[in-house]
Amino acid sequence: MLTIENLNVDYGGIQALKGISLKVNENEIVSVLGANGAGKSTLLMSISGIVTASQGSIVFDGQEISGKSSSQIVRIGISQVPEGREVFKGLSIQDNLMMGTYHHHSKSTKQSIADDLNRVFDYFPRLKERRTQFAGTLSGGEQQMLAIGRGIMARPKLLMLDEPSLGLAPLIIEDIFMILLALHKENIPILLIEQNAKAALRIATRGYVMEAGRIIMEGKASDLLEDKHIVSAYLGG
């Protein structure tokens, strides 16, 4: 479904990504692990078309998407939940969710959008209670839920999440990862970037490990969880 080959990205003279090759198949949750500064976010930003690659190809659904603008890529079906949530704090919760529909808003019926909204509210009942409040009044965990909800509203064929667990309490992280599993059951493939390797590998089908702009290891999530190198470097054991 998503195939990245030999992707290179230069960021102000620094080579942030060095020959990344990665795949996400239908019905997979793929986790990309790695320390801060390994290039994980740059990877997502180049898939989303915010950062342009200097070399390499990104093919989605048989279509080359590197070089396309971010709005074209969203329309093609790749939606990103960015690091640090980046919700629109000055808009209400419901309006934030509606912004997710931007690329298909004029083509979709009101009923189908209302159905999507109810689906998001089923996942996150807290958002429904506070739908008219400003997103800036939400806690970190609730903002993360809102950011994911906004991603769902875009009707993605592939959902990418950048560090959804960042700065959240363990219980909330568990909630959020359960919802990712539920989305996966609805046949939305997920590309998940995480520093919280244990949690990420537990829900993932496969995983990649990045270091200094390169992929240094890849494999089935269950194998990675037992790998000695991964355990010592990322799982704190």
């Binding site: 915010i50 980046e86 629109f88 931007y102």
Partner: peptide, 17 residues
């Protein structure tokens, strides 16, 4: 509202398409 979203966070707005 989309215009307000752009104003507040251009990058997140581009990610919405």
């Amino acid at each position: 509202k989309a215009m307000r979203a752009c104003a507040e966070n251009p990058r997140a707005a581009s990610l919405m398409g």
